[in-house]
Amino acid sequence: HNLTITQGKLFFHYNPKLCLSEIHKMEEVSGTKGRQERNDIALKTNGDQASCENELLKFSYIRTSFDKILLRWEPYWPPDFRDLLGFMLFYKEAPYQNVTEFDGQDACGSNSWTVVDIDPPLRSNDPKSQNHPGWLMRGLKPWTQYAIFVKTLVTFSDERRTYGAKSDIIYVQTDATNPSVPLDPISVSNSSSQIILKWKPPSDPNGNITHYLVFWERQAEDSELFELDYCLKGLKLPSRTWSPPFESEDSQKHNQSEYEDSAGECCSCPKTDSQILKELEESSFRKTFEDYLHNVVFVPRKTSSGTGAEDPRPSRKRRSLGDVGNVTVAVPTVAAFPNTSSTSVPTSPEEHRPFEKVVNKESLVISGLRHFTGYRIELQACNQDTPEERCSVAAYVSARTMPEAKADDIVGPVTHEIFENNVVHLMWQEPKEPNGLIVLYEVSYRRYGDEELHLCVSRKHFALERGCRLRGLSPGNYSVRIRATSLAGNGSWTEPTYFYVTDYLDVPSNIA
C-alpha cells in the first residue's frame, strides 16, 4: 500500500525493539523526510534493546553428524571492536523451508527459537588472519532439518551509529543413524509349514526405512522333555500350542467401542483428552525405555581390526524358502538304536541362519518350516543398504507352526516275539517326523474274553527296548493296539495285532 503524509511529521519514542533503520525507511515511504526535528525521533529510546544489523554474515563451514552440527561463519568486528559482546545463534526444527525470524513471537518477546549466546573469538592483530567464530550444536535429532541463523550482539553506541551483522536463515539436516526397533511384532501360524509375521514401523526411523531383515531359527525343545518319565503317576503330560491366527481386521481397528449394538453396526467412541494424553505418555515412556535398553543392555560386537582377528559373527547367506525346513542338525536320541526319531534339535552355532529381506511392506510369510516346531524370529529395521547396512537392534518374537495331521501315527506293522515265561516283546517304529517329539506310547492289549488293559511306555523305555515287553501273560489269544502321544496330543491307534500265548508248562520236552 502507498502511504503519503502531505502535512505533519513523524514522532517515535520509547520503541526499544524498533531499529532506527526501520524508522528511516518509514520517513522515505511516507514522504516526511526532512520535516522531523532532532528530538522527534529519539536516538536513545528507539532500538536500544534490539540488534540492528546492516551487514550480512556468511557461514564459512558446515559439518553434520547424526546428532551434531558444527558451524563456522566469517569474522565480524565493528569499528570499535570492544562493542562486540558476542553472537546469538538461533535454531529450531523446520520440516519445511518457510521459516521466518519472527515465527511464534508474542507480545512478551518470546519466540519459538532456541538461542545460544556465543563469546567472540580472540581478536588477531592481523586483519587478514582473524579467527572464524563458530559453535557445535549438540543433542539434535537424527535425520531432522533445522533452520539456523546467527547475528551479532553489540553494545549501545553513544554516537548512535547503527552497526551489526546478521546471516540469512539456512537449512541444515542432520545425518541418518540406526533406527529404533520395529514396533509390535506379531507372529502367527496359518499352516503346519508357515508363519505369518506382521509389525509396525519404528517410532524413530532416523532416516528413510529402506528394508527390513527377518531372521528365523528353529528352537530346540526343553531338555526336561527328553529326561522326564511322563508315565509316572502324578506327572502331567506336557503340551505345546501353536500360535493362533490373526483376529479379523475389524476387531483390530483402534479407537473402536468394545460393545456392539445388537441391531447392527455401531460407531466408534472418540477417545477423551485424558485417554489420548495417557497414550502419549505411555508411548514416550516406551521410547525412553527402549533407548535405555539399547544403550545399557546391548553391547556392540567388536569388529575385526587390522591384526587379522576374525569377526566372530557368522556370515549372512541367503537361502531359498524351500530350504528352511531342514535348518537344524538332527541327532538321534540314543545312538545305539537307529530307529528312534531325530527330534532332539541342538543347533550348531556355526550354522548360517536363513533370512529374508523385506522391502516396502511390514509383513512376511515364512514358508518351508517344520510342522509343530518353535521358531525364534528376529526382526531388524534398516535405513541404508549400501555401502553397508545400517540397521536397528533386533526385536524378537516366537511362534510355533501348526501340527501336521497323521504325523504322530505309527507307520509300519507292530511285530512281536514270544519268549519263555510268557513274555512277549512288542516292537514298532517311532514316527519319523512327529509333531514336536514323542513323549510316550500307549499300549492297549486284551486277552479274548477279558477286559482291555493299558500300559504306558516312556520315551526312554522305548529307546532301550525298541518297544516294550509284556510279562506274566496268561495263555490265550491276544490283540494289541499302540498309539503315540506327542507334544500336540495323541496320534491314531494302530491296526490290531494278534498273537497267541501258550502255557509254557505244557511245552513238550526233548528229553527222552
Rank of each mutant, 00 (worst) to 15 (best):
P312G: 10
P338Q: 11
A220E: 13
Y498R: 10
F372Q: 04
L464K: 04
T415P: 00
P403V: 05
G308C: 03
P300R: 03
V296G: 04
D229E: 05
S444H: 11
H211T: 08
Q219W: 06
T497G: 08
A488S: 07
P496M: 02
S315Y: 14
H425S: 12
K302I: 09
S251D: 12
N477F: 13
L453Y: 01
P300F: 12
G374Q: 12
L453C: 10
N421Y: 13
S486M: 00
P434V: 07
Y396V: 06
R471A: 08
R471S: 05
V443K: 00
G374S: 06
P354Q: 13
A488V: 09
H371Q: 11
L237Y: 06
E281D: 03
T307P: 10
E388P: 06
S320T: 09
T333L: 09
P403Q: 08
L228I: 13
Y292Q: 09
E282I: 05
I410N: 03
V424R: 06
E258M: 03
V439Y: 13
Q429E: 15
K317T: 07
V397L: 14
V334N: 07
T288N: 10
T307W: 06
V296Q: 05
N422T: 09
Y498L: 02
G264I: 11
K361S: 10
L440V: 14
R240H: 07
G308V: 15
N422Y: 11
P403F: 10
E356T: 09
T210N: 02
F499D: 00
E389N: 15
N295S: 11
T386I: 15
K406Q: 13
V334K: 12
A395M: 10
L437N: 03
E282R: 11
P387A: 10
S315F: 13
F355L: 10
Y441R: 01
D506E: 03
G368Y: 06
F372T: 03
E442F: 13
C266G: 15
R483T: 01
R353Y: 05
R390A: 14
V299W: 02
M402C: 15
G234N: 06
S479V: 13
A309Y: 11
N255Y: 04
T343A: 14
N421K: 13
S320P: 08
V439N: 03
N208Y: 11
I377M: 09
I418S: 09
A484M: 03
E495Q: 06
H211R: 11
T497H: 06
T343E: 10
G322F: 02
L440G: 15
A335R: 12
E227I: 06
P338V: 08
L470K: 00
E247V: 12
S367M: 02
D408I: 00
V480L: 04
V297G: 14
V439D: 05
S262V: 03
T288S: 10
P475V: 08
D506A: 12
K278D: 11
L228E: 15
T415K: 06
H211Q: 04
V324T: 08
N208W: 15
E388W: 06
V329L: 13
E404H: 14
V501P: 01
E465V: 11
T272E: 02
S305W: 03
D273Q: 13
G467K: 08
P354K: 07
T343C: 04
A395Q: 04
K406P: 06
C231A: 01
P496Q: 02
K236Q: 05
K278E: 05
N295T: 05
E350R: 14
F337P: 11
A395E: 11
S474N: 12
R319D: 08
R286V: 11
L505E: 13
L225T: 13
V365A: 13
S342D: 09
D291S: 09
E442N: 04
R483E: 00
S315C: 07
H461P: 04
N383G: 03
S444A: 14
D204Q: 09
R400S: 09
V329M: 07
G306Q: 08
S315D: 09
K357E: 13
P270T: 13
L277A: 07
R286P: 04
C468N: 01
E417G: 09
V299I: 08
V297K: 10
L505Y: 14
R447V: 10
V480N: 01
G489A: 11
E388K: 13
E420A: 09
N422F: 02
L280N: 15
S243I: 12
T485V: 02
N206S: 05
D506R: 11
P403Y: 09
Y396D: 01
K357V: 13
V297M: 10
R483S: 07
V214D: 00
E351M: 10
E452C: 14
T494R: 02
T343Y: 07
F355G: 12
P475N: 08
D222V: 09
E389W: 11
F289A: 03
Q380G: 12
L455P: 01
N206H: 15
R376M: 09
H294Y: 03
H416Q: 11
R483G: 01
N490A: 08
G472E: 07
F285D: 13
D250N: 15
E227D: 06
G491S: 09
A484Q: 02
G449H: 01
S239P: 13
P314Q: 06
E433W: 06
H425K: 12
V299A: 15
V334E: 02
N490S: 15
E217I: 00
E282N: 02
R446L: 13
N208K: 15
R471M: 04
R313P: 13
I377T: 03
V327H: 10
E265H: 09
N295R: 14
A309N: 12
N208A: 08
C231F: 01
H371T: 11
K233Y: 12
V480P: 01
V358F: 15
P244W: 10
E433V: 11
W216Y: 08
G449Q: 11
S392R: 01
V345I: 15
L237E: 13
S479Y: 09
Y230H: 03
E224V: 01
M402D: 01
V324G: 04
Y504W: 12
N435T: 00
S479F: 09
R301Q: 13
Y478F: 04
H425L: 03
V480R: 01
R483Y: 01
N510Q: 05
G306M: 14
K287P: 07
S342H: 08
K317H: 13
V507R: 15
T340P: 10
E217D: 09
N208L: 08
E378V: 12
R376T: 10
P387F: 09
C267Y: 07
V214R: 00
V423Y: 14
S341M: 08
C231N: 01
T415Q: 04
S398Q: 06
G472C: 04
T415N: 02
S243H: 10
L321V: 09
E247S: 12
Q256F: 10
N360Q: 13
H425I: 13
N421F: 02
I438V: 13
F462W: 13
S492F: 06
F462R: 13
F419K: 14
P434S: 08
S283E: 12
R316M: 06
G234K: 06
L379G: 00
L505N: 07
W493F: 06
T340F: 11
F372H: 06
A309S: 14
T502S: 13
E404T: 10
R481K: 14
H254P: 05
G491L: 01
K302Q: 11
G322R: 14
C456R: 02
Y396H: 13
G325E: 06
P387Y: 09
P270E: 04
K278H: 01
R390Y: 12
L237T: 09
Q275W: 07
H254M: 13
H294T: 02
S283G: 05
C231P: 02
A335Y: 06
T415V: 10
L437T: 01
R319S: 09
H454Y: 14
N339R: 12
N255W: 14
S283F: 12
C269R: 05
N477I: 09
C267E: 05
T347V: 12
P354H: 12
K302W: 10
G467F: 06
V439W: 09
T303K: 07
F419C: 14
R301C: 04
V358G: 14
N295K: 10
K460M: 12
V331Q: 14
F226E: 13
T502M: 14
V443Y: 01
H211G: 09
E249R: 07
A330M: 06
S320N: 06
T288V: 09
N208F: 10
E417Y: 03
Y441Q: 01
Y500C: 15
R318H: 08
A220P: 10
D323A: 07
E258R: 11
D409Q: 09
S315K: 04
L277I: 12
S304Y: 08
E281S: 12
W242Y: 06
V359G: 08
